[in-house]
Design a protein around this nucleic acid. Structure first.
Lengths: 144, 144
DNA sequence: TATTGTTATACTCTATAACTATA
DNA sequence: TATAGTTATAGAGTATAACAATA
């Protein structure tokens, strides 16, 4: 049997630290974690309903409302009733929102690069490749 | 710039799935996550105070009390006042506790091996080596 | 007075249920 | 009546503060 600690027990503190690092950077940019997640989702493409956005980022629809309020207030997203179905809210990132998100992301990635520098070039590549492969596995396949 | 998603955003869902998998296994063994963490800490060596145990597993001292109650009730740990300082509680795993912990750990690792089988042998090795190296970094060094 | 463990309280985050408006 | 969004409420998990026992 391979002698190692449980994978989850090993990775969880690492992820916790990475999230703490991300929160520090985001705080410098005046953005909350949920705001960053929303901006990142909308930077890929606009979304037609708040429920769809919540679904896309794995959040409850009731939980993102105050975040959307603040983002709209700050002019980082637009949020208008769909003329064709005025129950729905068309969501899109603004130019300011895009700038804010990308500036924050650049700082986050710079810090992650600094951390990854602890690895050899070969291990770094393999680690990222493996992490990508594992995180692409369906939740059910991992849970079994 | 390397084209990849944020590291934390990539790893967090993976860890979440791994924890869900672990919880499923632990449930089959009738052990909670906190109980498993406590048993794992005590399987390495006994601990002289509850505060030290809490510190060791990164928990609040008030938060492990009900867990210790249940473990003691189930006969998986021993917990006696230190004769030399009766404020302190000497904590140790019992033979039953050790059996329970190791049985659970074997199943957890078996599932993790199944997940890791998605990787090539080389990537699997490099991933584990890198994960170990990164998780050994001090929290402050990652946060920056 | 200081320390260990415990209990009581408050706070944060999240999920559930009820409500408004549009369809 | 059904759906999108919102607000109000309740629940779980955690941290903080007060307390009891021992030193």
């Amino acid at each position: 049997m391979t002698e190692r600690r449980d994978l989850a027990a090993m990775l969880q503190p690492l992820v916790k630290s990475l999230i703490a690092a991300e929160l520090r950077v985001l705080e410098e940019h005046g953005i909350s974690m949920w705001s960053y997640v929303v901006l990142s989702a909308l930077d890929d493409s606009p979304i037609r309903t708040q429920a769809a956005l919540a679904e896309a980022i794995g959040a409850d629809k009731t939980r993102i409302i105050s975040t959307l309020d603040r983002l709209q207030e700050a002019g980082l997203i637009s949020r208008e009733p769909d003329p064709e179905d005025r129950r729905a809210r068309l969501l899109a990132i603004t130019q300011d929102g895009r700038s804010a998100r990308r500036a924050a992301q650049a700082d986050i990635r710079a810090n992650e690069e600094r951390v990854l520098a602890a690895l050899s070039a070969a291990d770094r590549q393999a680690f990222l490749r493996a992490a990508q492969a594992l995180s692409a596995m369906p939740h059910e396949e991992i849970v079994g």
